[in-house]
Design a protein around this nucleic acid. Structure first.
Lengths: 197, 197
DNA sequence: AAAACCGGTTTC
DNA sequence: GAAACCGGTTTT
């Protein structure tokens, strides 16, 4: 029952009119709401999700991509280091805690995976082949405060791909929940094209 | 709309059949439930409550009483220090954090108030006069775990009074909530005699 | 897997 | 002050 959130052609501040790299988050249980804001995809902490990358031009070149988990709202991003610092203290092993992980054995088409930072994964792939990475998140949208009973903070799954000296950016607005299962409570409708460039 | 929870004659392991010291918790908004367990009184963190002490024999002697906030269940009391240690780390000033406080200016008939420990108050009063102490709790029943969504731990308001070389003990099962207002949600019935000796 | 529970928070 | 919201937890 997989369903995909596609990289839409809708453009933000990119210099080119169309995107060469297409990113798709395969979120089996995700749904999206419209609050008048960006669509929201619900994901579960610890669960595996596949992120597919394709070069629409099929050029046989090496592309370097970085996948980052960050706060969606600008106000939160301004003081992100404080939130992550708090998150870190709540983890079992603050030193080696990672907010996002890649499952190499389930991923394909990727090379030179780097875990330089706790909040991102960098890797290379070939445009003619494409890449499928299986990722997992180790944080909850409610992990950034000890206050009980409050709404979780919307996060952003952000990608940056460098192909032929050109940088393409894209992101998806997500919320991370605790449940291992589908969070049926708030499932409402299925939306596409929530991946923005 | 004050209502009182009286020190019942019901006896546990006291050596005497009746109690000389009567303790009454004046809990304006409290209610009690019967789970087949001890009655439970709901209190609000930060709110003032009056505890009255009387010498039923009206003897004009000095009585030393101690009021303690502790865990009601034995299993929790066994590892109480761990819970309180955690609670302490969550407080603004772990060093001088107190779980229970007395408002001296509103209290009457008390002398030599001692704050030797964070979880108790000791003081002297005269049997012929009685004492009214106004106390306040600085902890929540949910403060002993960072897990969100779980039930709060039942606590115990415990008193120990020394009069004429005789020690009288009593307690009341309570739960401390956040609300500054009445927690009408779970108010069900009014019960008396929930103060056990 | 679904529904109820829990209690702090927010809204009305 | 009452009711709805929120999401982690527990129960069924």
């Amino acid at each position: 029952m997989a369903f995909t959130i596609k990289n839409s052609a809708k453009n933000g501040n990119s210099t080119s009119a169309s995107n060469r790299v297409e990113v798709i988050l395969d979120a089996p249980t995700a749904a999206a709401q419209v609050d008048g804001e960006a669509p929201l995809t619900y994901l579960n902490k610890g669960q595996y999700y596949t992120l597919s990358l394709k070069d629409k031009t099929n050029t046989d070149a090496s592309i370097t991509s970085t996948v980052v988990i960050m706060f969606h709202d600008e106000n939160y991003r301004k003081v992100a280091s404080n939130y992550w610092k708090f998150w870190r203290t709540q983890q079992d092993n603050p030193q080696q805690a990672r907010a996002i992980d890649i499952e190499s054995s389930k991923s394909s088409g990727v090379d030179d995976i780097e875990f330089q930072y706790f909040d991102r994964i960098a890797f290379k792939w070939r445009g003619a082949v494409g890449a499928n990475i299986v990722i997992r998140f180790n944080c909850l949208s409610t992990d950034f405060s000890r206050i009980k009973g409050v709404k979780g903070i919307p996060l952003r799954l952000y990608t940056e791909s460098v192909a032929s000296d050109r940088v393409e950016k894209g992101y998806c607005r997500i919320k991370l929940f605790r449940d291992k299962n589908v969070r049926t409570k708030m499932m409402q409708s299925i939306s596409r094209d929530s991946w923005k460039s």
